[in-house]
Design a protein around this nucleic acid. Structure first.
Lengths: 392, 392
DNA sequence: ACCCTTTCTTCGAGACTCGTAATAATTGCC
DNA sequence: GGCAATTATTACGAGTCTCGAAGAAAGGGT
């Protein structure tokens, strides 16, 4: 019982081109036709033709140089890689306190960066900053621009439905951005979804296409991939894990509601818990979280107590996530997850595991390997998904 | 970023055959080729060929009789329907206190029924009952048998992982059933998943393939369909909505954990709440729930108070469901939902709606139209999904 | 040098969908 | 009752596509 589609044989070729594209992407710069044959299951003949088309168009280049992993004898494999100069994608990570932009080639390797240490206060300013970023980064052909905005984003309409604090509501962003950048479309979404795309193209999703990505930062949320496809839900609300009302309603979230996970697991929530436990809290959020990590390692009792609270809160969130969705893997991303790491994840998992109805698969919960540039990479991937369909 | 597949043009035909099959199913007995063309988007030529194949094989018959909805003039449309005698599917709904079995033709129209007013106490007895049911129902060719078992079912392994009360653990069922029925395979799953398939083939899923089906009975749970595909999760745990630990941990669930939705929304939980509110509770569960509905209508204060509690509890479950998954539609099924109906759903929705970050689409939460036979129909659909691939 | 192994390309066969033209089956009008 | 108009269905030719098998390419080993 799947979709009612209408595929002609030309669409079949399209699908196979896309499959080859993704295979080369996943195999990395050492990819050869033989590897692609193995990974896609297509015949050597078809792969040969499709690769020929892609090189023809300049998407791929054939590297006669060092053979891949030819098994000793025989004709060496020709290496395939994306042409660095075919064009570039720009991903822009807009936050409340900064804007980071990055240009990538088709292999999603970063080629240049741009940043501002403050966020935009209005849509006009947003457009202006994005224009400055793209102007600065622009090198070869611009294939597409993706922008990640914090908050709830209506992708189809290209609108920011509400900012994380609820102060900005329902403003159009995709259209002004497209106009400002003189592009036919600009892809807009939020960091949760960008992070999933980043994992799918360049992280854990390369080996496991069914996953949830939890982002821990000032805000908290989840991005969901089902069989390699990003799911946004029918009203772009899927993954608002951070605002599930699972915890003690005594604490109010910045979204205005009570008991949200984010009110406890977001950086401000963590600092509140620390203060309640009597730990000292330094001024900036990032320093305070780093100090928290150090205090845990040093065995500070207040920090350890707070950690226990927070691990318990995260455990509840993990139980709900697993028992409703049961993803194959969960990836923890975001700067708070990077800073606290297994100090937080391990105890949370230990608490969560016995409360689920079945044992957890090994390696179910992992930290993201992508680090800082995850959201810019994912934002670029927003545009890539589209570019693959369009140009390849 | 979707799947890496390997479709040859023969697979394309397979896909189109399946699309035509589903289209005829969805259009019902008044289907004509033109309707199929419209629904699938395939060309008239292709539909003609595929329908020709299906009639050739005896799956479809062409009814020259009463034209469909020819718009006045012109050659009348030839009606297409499934051949009632092509073969039958048997769906078996095994519960703790009864076993219902039903035979269906390819259009999922019931052709015969069988039932027992007690449930099996062992796997041997289960096999024996299923054998008796199938022997009784067997008419034309048997295309497949699907069995719904309460509890947590590992579909790939064909095992019952645990019964709802946790007393039975990890027993093989699919293999003994297949052996007992002398069939190559028997499809096993739980009522939550069966209910989703029932909605997809014969209920709300015909117009909206992205939905969650909430089943309210002695147990409580959800079944999830994403774009028309039943999702079970990687360890068959997806949809265990009834055991989300969202509510007051003071009450213990029969699964042994505390605060589960099921402990409040399952029939025994509802009766507990009624008793706590000082309402009188009659002996059998079904009578008590019916009496509850009557008391609500009569304006009984204890019943109204209990209803408010229960609506609040359901509201929490609805908020979590929407904000994590955001399905296009939610269908309420099961005998408790049938008995209480909008008395419960409306106030729950009223409480839930303002707590979600975005307004709800119209008609988001609806009662199932399928009634009693939903699980047997869904169990048969478990086998149908497979039969379409295999035989058509 | 020559053979062997492995990789890649070419070519013919078979399958499929589609658009268009032809055929079939009615209704409405004269 | 007969004929034109209308709609549904089928037949046919063109264009694609994938695949297997056979052939060409590119080194390594002896």
């Amino acid at each position: 019982m799947s979709e009612l589609r209408n595929p002609t044989s030309r669409d079949l070729r399209r699908a196979n081109r896309a499959a080859v594209f993704r295979a080369v992407h996943r195999l990395g710069p050492a990819a050869s036709r033989s590897d692609v044959v193995e990974l896609t299951g297509l015949s050597a003949a078809t792969v040969s033709v499709v690769v020929g088309e892609l090189t023809e168009r300049g998407v791929l280049v054939r590297d006669t140089a060092g053979s891949g992993r030819a098994s000793g004898a025989g004709r060496p494999r020709e290496r395939l890689r994306f042409d660095r100069d075919f064009g570039q994608l720009v991903g822009i990570d807009v936050a409340e306190t900064y804007v980071h932009a990055r240009a990538f080639d088709l292999s999603l390797t970063p080629t240049a960066s741009w940043s501002s240490d403050r966020g935009p206060d209005s849509v006009d300013e947003l457009v202006e900053m994005c224009r400055a970023a793209v102007a600065d980064l622009r090198g070869s052909d611009l294939l597409g621009v993706g922008v990640s905005l914090p908050g709830l984003v209506d992708v189809a309409e290209g609108r920011l439905v509400r900012s994380p604090d609820g102060r900005v509501r329902d403003v159009a962003v995709a259209a002004p951005l497209a106009a400002g950048l003189a592009l036919p479309t600009v892809h807009v979404d939020n960091p949760l979804r960008a992070s999933v795309l980043a994992e799918l193209w360049a992280g854990a999703g390369r080996s496991e296409p069914d996953l949830a990505v939890l982002t821990f930062g000032t805000g908290v949320g989840a991005g969901l991939s089902v069989d390699g496809v990003l799911r946004r839900g029918v009203t772009d609300l899927a993954g608002e894990w951070g605002h599930l009302p699972l915890l003690d309603p005594a604490r109010t979230c910045r979204c205005g509601r009570t008991g949200c996970l984010e009110a406890y697991l977001g950086a401000p929530g963590i600092l509140t818990t620390l203060a309640e436990r009597g730990a000292s809290v330094t001024e900036t959020q990032t320093d305070a979280i780093a100090a928290f990590a150090a205090d845990i390692d040093a065995g500070d009792p207040a920090a350890r107590g707070a950690l226990a609270d927070i691990a318990e809160q995260l455990a509840v969130g993990l139980v709900v996530l697993r028992m409703l969705l049961d993803p194959a893997r969960v990836v923890a991303a975001g700067w708070v997850a990077d800073a606290l790491g297994d100090r937080l994840l391990e105890p949370a998992l230990d608490r969560a595991a016995p409360r689920m109805l079945r044992p957890l698969p090994d390696g179910w919960l992992q930290r993201s390997e992508l680090g800082d540039g995850q959201v810019t990479l994912g934002a670029a991937a927003l545009a890539l998904d589209d570019a693959v369909d369009r140009l390849v």
